[in-house]
Simulated assay, not measured.
Amino acid sequence: MRILVVEDDSTLADGIARALRAENFAVDVAGNGEDGGHLGATELYDAAVLDLGLPLRDGISVLRDWRAQGRTLPVLILTARDGWSEKVAGFKAGADDYLTKPFRVEEVVMRLRALVRRAAGHAGSRIVCGPVAFDAQLGLFELDGLPLKLTAFEWRVLSALMLRKEVVIERAQLIERVYEGDADVDSNSIEVIIGRLRRKIGAGMIETVRGRGYRLTAGS
Protein backbone atom coordinates (compact mmCIF):
# COMPACT_ATOMS: atom_id res chain seq x y z
CA MET A 1 0.00 0.00 0.00
CA ARG A 2 1.19 3.49 -0.84
CA ILE A 3 0.11 6.63 1.01
CA LEU A 4 0.48 10.31 0.11
CA VAL A 5 1.01 12.69 3.04
CA VAL A 6 0.47 16.38 2.24
CA GLU A 7 1.51 18.37 5.32
CA ASP A 8 3.59 21.55 5.63
CA ASP A 9 4.72 20.88 9.23
CA SER A 10 7.85 18.84 8.47
CA THR A 11 8.09 17.41 11.99
CA LEU A 12 4.50 16.18 11.88
CA ALA A 13 4.85 14.89 8.31
CA ASP A 14 8.02 12.99 9.19
CA GLY A 15 6.33 11.48 12.25
CA ILE A 16 3.35 10.28 10.21
CA ALA A 17 5.63 8.90 7.49
CA ARG A 18 7.77 7.02 10.04
CA ALA A 19 4.70 5.50 11.68
CA LEU A 20 3.30 4.38 8.33
CA ARG A 21 6.61 2.95 7.12
CA ALA A 22 6.94 1.04 10.40
CA GLU A 23 3.63 -0.61 9.43
CA ASN A 24 5.03 -1.52 5.97
CA PHE A 25 3.35 1.26 3.97
CA ALA A 26 5.17 3.07 1.16
CA VAL A 27 4.93 6.83 1.79
CA ASP A 28 5.45 9.96 -0.31
CA VAL A 29 5.47 13.35 1.42
CA ALA A 30 4.64 16.78 -0.04
CA GLY A 31 5.10 19.99 1.93
CA ASN A 32 2.75 22.28 0.02
CA GLY A 33 -0.51 22.21 -1.89
CA GLU A 34 1.03 22.56 -5.35
CA ASP A 35 3.31 19.53 -4.99
CA GLY A 36 0.69 17.49 -3.15
CA GLY A 37 -1.97 18.28 -5.71
CA HIS A 38 0.31 17.25 -8.57
CA LEU A 39 1.31 13.96 -6.91
CA GLY A 40 -2.28 13.05 -6.08
CA ALA A 41 -3.36 13.79 -9.64
CA THR A 42 -0.59 11.87 -11.41
CA GLU A 43 0.52 9.00 -9.13
CA LEU A 44 -1.32 5.92 -7.84
CA TYR A 45 -2.02 5.97 -4.09
CA ASP A 46 -4.19 3.81 -1.87
CA ALA A 47 -5.06 6.85 0.28
CA ALA A 48 -3.97 10.39 1.09
CA VAL A 49 -3.49 12.35 4.29
CA LEU A 50 -4.25 15.99 3.52
CA ASP A 51 -3.78 19.10 5.65
CA LEU A 52 -6.08 22.04 4.99
CA GLY A 53 -3.79 24.96 5.87
CA LEU A 54 -1.13 24.44 3.20
CA PRO A 55 1.17 26.96 1.51
CA LEU A 56 0.71 27.76 -2.20
CA ARG A 57 -2.68 25.98 -2.36
CA ASP A 58 -5.09 25.12 0.44
CA GLY A 59 -6.18 21.56 1.01
CA ILE A 60 -9.82 22.13 0.06
CA SER A 61 -8.92 23.33 -3.44
CA VAL A 62 -6.49 20.43 -3.86
CA LEU A 63 -9.18 17.95 -2.88
CA ARG A 64 -11.79 19.56 -5.14
CA ASP A 65 -9.41 19.29 -8.08
CA TRP A 66 -8.69 15.61 -7.38
CA ARG A 67 -12.38 14.80 -7.34
CA ALA A 68 -13.06 16.90 -10.46
CA GLN A 69 -10.32 14.91 -12.21
CA GLY A 70 -11.97 11.66 -11.20
CA ARG A 71 -9.38 10.71 -8.59
CA THR A 72 -11.17 8.41 -6.15
CA LEU A 73 -8.41 7.73 -3.61
CA PRO A 74 -9.69 7.89 -0.01
CA VAL A 75 -8.68 11.14 1.71
CA LEU A 76 -8.17 11.68 5.43
CA ILE A 77 -8.10 15.38 6.31
CA LEU A 78 -5.81 16.43 9.14
CA THR A 79 -6.23 19.97 10.39
CA ALA A 80 -6.12 22.28 13.38
CA ARG A 81 -9.47 23.70 12.26
CA ASP A 82 -12.07 22.02 14.44
CA GLY A 83 -15.11 24.13 13.58
CA TRP A 84 -18.16 22.40 12.14
CA SER A 85 -18.15 24.65 9.04
CA GLU A 86 -14.61 23.53 8.16
CA LYS A 87 -15.61 19.88 8.52
CA VAL A 88 -18.66 20.40 6.31
CA ALA A 89 -16.48 22.10 3.68
CA GLY A 90 -14.04 19.20 3.79
CA PHE A 91 -16.71 16.56 3.34
CA LYS A 92 -18.42 18.55 0.59
CA ALA A 93 -15.11 18.74 -1.24
CA GLY A 94 -14.88 14.95 -1.14
CA ALA A 95 -13.10 13.98 2.08
CA ASP A 96 -13.68 10.49 3.46
CA ASP A 97 -12.60 11.11 7.05
CA TYR A 98 -11.54 14.02 9.25
CA LEU A 99 -9.12 14.21 12.18
CA THR A 100 -8.31 17.37 14.15
CA LYS A 101 -4.93 18.22 15.64
CA PRO A 102 -3.50 17.24 18.05
CA PHE A 103 -3.86 13.50 17.45
CA ARG A 104 -1.94 10.26 17.87
CA VAL A 105 -0.22 8.94 14.77
CA GLU A 106 -1.48 5.47 15.69
CA GLU A 107 -5.01 6.71 15.04
CA VAL A 108 -3.95 7.99 11.62
CA VAL A 109 -2.63 4.53 10.76
CA MET A 110 -5.82 2.79 11.90
CA ARG A 111 -8.10 5.22 10.07
CA LEU A 112 -6.11 4.87 6.87
CA ARG A 113 -6.30 1.08 7.05
CA ALA A 114 -10.06 1.30 7.41
CA LEU A 115 -10.36 3.73 4.48
CA VAL A 116 -8.22 1.54 2.20
CA ARG A 117 -10.16 -1.59 3.17
CA ARG A 118 -13.55 -0.02 2.55
CA ALA A 119 -12.41 1.53 -0.74
CA ALA A 120 -11.47 -1.97 -1.91
CA GLY A 121 -15.02 -3.13 -1.14
CA HIS A 122 -14.50 -5.01 2.13
CA ALA A 123 -16.96 -4.27 4.92
CA GLY A 124 -15.24 -6.55 7.43
CA SER A 125 -11.62 -6.39 8.49
CA ARG A 126 -10.81 -10.09 7.97
CA ILE A 127 -10.20 -11.13 4.37
CA VAL A 128 -9.61 -14.78 3.50
CA CYS A 129 -8.27 -16.38 0.33
CA GLY A 130 -7.66 -20.11 0.64
CA PRO A 131 -5.18 -20.74 3.48
CA VAL A 132 -4.21 -17.05 3.69
CA ALA A 133 -6.04 -14.65 6.00
CA PHE A 134 -5.45 -10.91 6.25
CA ASP A 135 -6.60 -8.72 9.13
CA ALA A 136 -6.80 -5.49 7.18
CA GLN A 137 -7.39 -3.41 10.31
CA LEU A 138 -4.30 -4.68 12.14
CA GLY A 139 -2.20 -5.35 9.04
CA LEU A 140 -1.48 -8.96 10.00
CA PHE A 141 -1.31 -12.04 7.77
CA GLU A 142 -1.86 -15.68 8.69
CA LEU A 143 -1.17 -18.88 6.76
CA ASP A 144 -3.17 -21.90 7.90
CA GLY A 145 -3.95 -20.06 11.13
CA LEU A 146 -0.33 -19.24 11.96
CA PRO A 147 1.38 -15.82 11.72
CA LEU A 148 2.98 -15.23 8.34
CA LYS A 149 6.26 -13.31 8.41
CA LEU A 150 6.77 -10.97 5.46
CA THR A 151 9.22 -8.27 4.46
CA ALA A 152 7.84 -4.78 3.88
CA PHE A 153 7.88 -5.26 0.11
CA GLU A 154 6.23 -8.69 0.38
CA TRP A 155 3.56 -7.22 2.67
CA ARG A 156 2.79 -4.43 0.20
CA VAL A 157 2.43 -6.81 -2.74
CA LEU A 158 0.39 -9.41 -0.85
CA SER A 159 -1.91 -6.81 0.73
CA ALA A 160 -2.59 -5.30 -2.71
CA LEU A 161 -3.41 -8.73 -4.10
CA MET A 162 -5.42 -9.72 -1.04
CA LEU A 163 -7.61 -6.61 -1.09
CA ARG A 164 -8.40 -7.40 -4.73
CA LYS A 165 -8.38 -11.20 -4.57
CA GLU A 166 -9.50 -13.05 -7.72
CA VAL A 167 -8.93 -9.84 -9.72
CA VAL A 168 -6.00 -9.29 -12.07
CA ILE A 169 -3.74 -6.43 -10.97
CA GLU A 170 -1.54 -4.97 -13.65
CA ARG A 171 2.19 -5.23 -13.08
CA ALA A 172 2.58 -1.44 -13.39
CA GLN A 173 -0.04 -0.89 -10.69
CA LEU A 174 1.73 -3.27 -8.33
CA ILE A 175 4.98 -1.39 -8.85
CA GLU A 176 3.25 1.91 -8.05
CA ARG A 177 1.73 0.46 -4.88
CA VAL A 178 5.01 -1.04 -3.65
CA TYR A 179 7.63 1.65 -4.23
CA GLU A 180 7.92 5.23 -3.07
CA GLY A 181 8.25 7.93 -5.71
CA ASP A 182 12.02 8.38 -5.40
CA ALA A 183 12.83 4.66 -5.39
CA ASP A 184 15.25 3.16 -7.92
CA VAL A 185 13.23 0.19 -9.18
CA ASP A 186 14.87 -2.79 -10.88
CA SER A 187 13.05 -4.07 -13.95
CA ASN A 188 12.42 -7.54 -12.42
CA SER A 189 11.82 -6.45 -8.84
CA ILE A 190 8.13 -7.38 -8.76
CA GLU A 191 8.87 -10.81 -10.21
CA VAL A 192 11.43 -11.41 -7.44
CA ILE A 193 8.90 -10.44 -4.75
CA ILE A 194 6.18 -12.59 -6.34
CA GLY A 195 8.61 -15.52 -6.39
CA ARG A 196 9.34 -15.14 -2.68
CA LEU A 197 5.63 -14.94 -1.88
CA ARG A 198 4.91 -18.09 -3.87
CA ARG A 199 7.48 -19.96 -1.81
CA LYS A 200 5.82 -18.74 1.38
CA ILE A 201 2.11 -19.21 0.61
CA GLY A 202 2.10 -21.74 -2.22
CA ALA A 203 3.03 -21.39 -5.87
CA GLY A 204 -0.51 -21.92 -7.15
CA MET A 205 -2.04 -19.03 -5.21
CA ILE A 206 -0.53 -16.25 -7.32
CA GLU A 207 -1.28 -16.61 -11.01
CA THR A 208 0.66 -14.83 -13.73
CA VAL A 209 -1.74 -13.50 -16.37
CA ARG A 210 0.52 -12.98 -19.35
CA GLY A 211 0.58 -9.50 -20.76
CA ARG A 212 -1.45 -8.15 -17.85
CA GLY A 213 -0.26 -8.88 -14.33
CA TYR A 214 -1.02 -11.10 -11.35
CA ARG A 215 -4.04 -12.52 -9.55
CA LEU A 216 -4.36 -13.98 -6.08
CA THR A 217 -6.67 -16.97 -6.16
CA ALA A 218 -7.82 -19.66 -3.77
CA GLY A 219 -7.96 -22.08 -6.72
CA SER A 220 -10.65 -24.59 -7.48
Results as ranks from 00 to 15, higher is better:
residue 198 R to V: 06
residue 101 K to W: 09
residue 50 L to K: 01
residue 202 G to T: 11
residue 151 T to S: 15
residue 142 E to C: 08
residue 10 S to F: 07
residue 180 E to P: 13
residue 38 H to R: 15
residue 178 V to N: 01
residue 110 M to E: 15
residue 158 L to H: 03
residue 130 G to A: 13
residue 128 V to L: 10
residue 83 G to I: 08
residue 81 R to H: 15
residue 13 A to E: 02
residue 48 A to L: 04
residue 88 V to E: 13
residue 189 S to R: 12
residue 138 L to Y: 13
residue 121 G to E: 06
residue 106 E to K: 10
residue 212 R to I: 11
residue 177 R to V: 07
residue 33 G to L: 02
residue 6 V to I: 15
residue 152 A to F: 04
residue 43 E to G: 06
residue 115 L to H: 03
residue 148 L to T: 04
residue 68 A to F: 05
residue 123 A to Y: 07
residue 66 W to C: 00
residue 59 G to C: 03
residue 5 V to N: 00
residue 128 V to S: 12
residue 112 L to N: 01
residue 113 R to N: 07
residue 117 R to Q: 08
residue 46 D to R: 05
residue 131 P to W: 02
residue 184 D to V: 13
residue 60 I to L: 11
residue 214 Y to A: 03
residue 185 V to T: 12
residue 157 V to D: 00
residue 4 L to Q: 01
residue 27 V to F: 01
residue 80 A to M: 12
residue 181 G to L: 15
residue 122 H to R: 08
residue 157 V to K: 00
residue 34 E to F: 11
residue 28 D to K: 05
residue 33 G to Q: 01
residue 51 D to F: 00
residue 145 G to L: 12
residue 80 A to Q: 12
residue 54 L to E: 01
residue 197 L to M: 10
residue 54 L to V: 03
residue 200 K to M: 04
residue 58 D to M: 02
residue 118 R to H: 14
residue 202 G to A: 11
residue 164 R to I: 09
residue 86 E to I: 07
residue 54 L to F: 06
residue 139 G to L: 03
residue 10 S to Q: 12
residue 205 M to C: 09
residue 63 L to P: 00
residue 79 T to V: 07
residue 163 L to S: 02
residue 165 K to R: 15
residue 84 W to M: 14
residue 176 E to S: 15
residue 70 G to H: 05
residue 48 A to C: 10
residue 12 L to I: 06
residue 133 A to E: 15
residue 166 E to Y: 06
residue 132 V to F: 03
residue 36 G to Y: 00
residue 152 A to L: 07
residue 44 L to R: 13
residue 79 T to D: 02
residue 151 T to A: 15
residue 85 S to A: 14
residue 217 T to Q: 06
residue 186 D to Q: 14
residue 17 A to K: 00
residue 183 A to H: 14
residue 207 E to R: 07
